[in-house]
């Protein structure tokens, strides 16, 4: 087969479009452009109940994503859930008395950790633990309490 100049150009165009497609997937479709979990510091928090929280769930401050959950473990001694979070290093000014709560995005949405900054002058460092935590809202417990209080009232 004769290789013409047009053919070479068309093949070059094809390969370029293919590579552009892979690039588009990486940047526009996936999370690669967003938060990069390579650089950051780890903090932990203990929850009575971490509910539907999963590894890779978002960690936010004031609604802005600053990191993600890197591991969830069970403490045999205290029967608590120990959640380790990876916070991006650019957000290194979280006060040590910040509190962590587990929220749900929408009624049926995914659970995430919301951090509320405290007023301390010292900042959280790698390996620190957040003392003030609020557990996940378990819908069944809430409904149970509601029904119970209703029944008591009558």
């Amino acid at each position: 087969m004769q290789i013409t100049r047009t053919m070479e150009i068309v093949v070059g165009l094809f390969v370029a479009i293919g590579i552009a497609a892979i690039f588009f997937m990486a940047m526009q479709v996936s999370n690669l452009a967003g938060f990069n979990d390579k650089e950051g510091y780890k903090i932990t928090a203990r929850f009575e109940n971490s509910g539907g929280l999963k590894v890779k769930s978002a960690v936010t401050v004031a609604g802005v994503r600053v990191g993600r959950v890197s591991s969830i473990q069970f403490d045999k001694e205290t029967y608590e859930s120990v959640v380790e979070m990876m916070i991006a290093s650019e957000f290194n000014t979280l006060p040590t008395d910040s509190s962590a709560s587990i929220y749900t995005a929408g009624l049926l949405g995914e659970q995430y950790i919301g951090l509320e900054p405290g007023g301390d002058e010292d900042f959280l460092n790698n390996g620190d633990e957040i003392q003030l935590t609020q557990s996940a809202l378990v819908l069944e417990e809430l409904i149970g309490q509601f029904l119970f209080s209703k029944a008591e009232g009558e």
Partner: peptide
């Protein structure tokens, strides 16, 4: 449409495996 996609689709897990 885009932000939920970016939040849930992981580059290593989904896109690299697809490739």
């Amino acid at each position: 449409y885009w932000s939920q996609m970016q939040a849930k689709i992981d580059f290593n897990e989904d896109i690299l495996n697809g490739i």
